Computed example of a mutant assay.
Amino acid sequence: MTTQNPMPLFYRKPQILRFEEHKGLGLVAKNDFSFSSNATAIPLSVTEFMPAVRHYPIVFIDAGGSPAPVAIVGLKQGHNLMLEGDGSWAPHAYVPAYIRRYPFILVQAPNEDTRYLAYDSESGRVKPLAEAPDAAPIFNDDGTASKVVEPMLQLCEAYHQHRAQDTAFLKALTDTDILVARHVDMEFPDKTRYRLDGFSVIDPERYRNLPARTLKQWTEKGWTDAAALHLASAQNWGLLMERNRQVSANGKDALSRH
C-alpha cells in the first residue's frame, strides 16, 4: 500500500483552469464518489483525524520515503466498502477532504510559488455547458470563480495548507522511530484469505517510552492529540468488518492483526 504513481490518486489528466479556455465548462452536481470504487485507502490530513477516528482505521503509508496518513476504507484491494450502490458515501460516515474536492486540485507551476486551480479533464463531472444545461458554470462572466466553484477552491487551499502543516509531525514520527509495520489477515465468507499490508502504525510502547522532553514538545504542538486519535482508530477494524458483512451476500468473516 504505497503511493508510487506520480499522478495524484484518482486524477488521470489534470488541467489548469483558464477563463479563456474553459469559460464554457460547467460542474455537474452529483453525490457520486464511484471514482474511488477501487480504493482501499484515502489520504488524510492530520486535522481530519478527529472526524475520521469515528469511522476508519488511520494508518501511515510510505509516500516517497516519508509517512503519509490515510483512512482505510476497504479490506480487499480494489473494493471500497464505503460506497453505496448508487455511488454515494456510506450514510453518516465522514467523507475525507481528498474525496470531497474531486475533480478539482491545486497545482503549482514550475519555478513559481503561485498555485492554480486545476480539474481532472477526464472526470464526467465537468462538461461543456452546451452539453449539460443543468451544470453550474465554473466561471463568472468576469473570469472569477463561480459561487459553485469558490467553495471547492477554498477546500483545495485548506487541504493544501493542512498537508503542508503535517510535514513537521510526520518527520517527527520518522525521527523518533516509533512507526512499525503492520498487516491485517482476513478470511472472507467464501473462505478465501487476504492480507492487507504495506502500512505502519505508531507502536504504543515506543510512544510511551519517548523522552519526557519530547512528549512535552509534542503536547505543545498538538501532536500527542494526533497520536492518541491514530491509536484509538485501531478499534475501527471491527467497524470495517461489520461493514463488509453488511455488503456481503454471506455472513461470516474473521480478522486477525499482527
Rank of each mutant, 00 (worst) to 15 (best):
Y194M: 04
S37C: 11
D141R: 09
Y102F: 14
A234S: 11
L129P: 01
Y94T: 04
P69N: 11
T47Y: 11
S233E: 07
T192Y: 09
Y159R: 05
F139V: 00
A93R: 09
P189S: 08
P43T: 10
V53Y: 12
R182K: 15
A118T: 03
G64K: 10
L25P: 01
V201L: 12
R115I: 09
K13C: 03
L155D: 05
L170F: 14
R243N: 01
A145V: 12
V149Y: 05
L9Y: 08
L179M: 06
Y56A: 02
K221C: 00
Y11K: 11
T214S: 04
M50G: 04
L129T: 03
A234Q: 13
A68S: 15
R125A: 13
L83H: 08
G143C: 01
T176F: 07
T176I: 04
K23E: 13
S146D: 01
A228R: 09
E48D: 06
V184Q: 05
K127Y: 01
S66D: 14
Y116W: 11
V148C: 08
A232N: 14
S121C: 05
F188A: 04
K127F: 00
F33G: 07
L27Y: 15
R257S: 12
I61Q: 13
P128Y: 04
P6K: 12
F104S: 04
V148Y: 11
S37H: 15
F33S: 07
L231W: 06
E21P: 03
V70W: 12
D120S: 05
D177K: 15
N111A: 13
D185T: 06
V126I: 10
M50P: 05
L179I: 00
D166L: 03
S121E: 02
R195D: 09
G26D: 12
N111Y: 07
F139P: 08
V149S: 01
E187M: 15
M82E: 06
A212L: 13
P57V: 00
M186E: 00
A97I: 06
K221L: 09
I16H: 02
G222I: 05
Q217K: 05
M1R: 02
G251H: 13
Q161E: 11
K221N: 10
R195H: 00
P43H: 07
N38K: 15
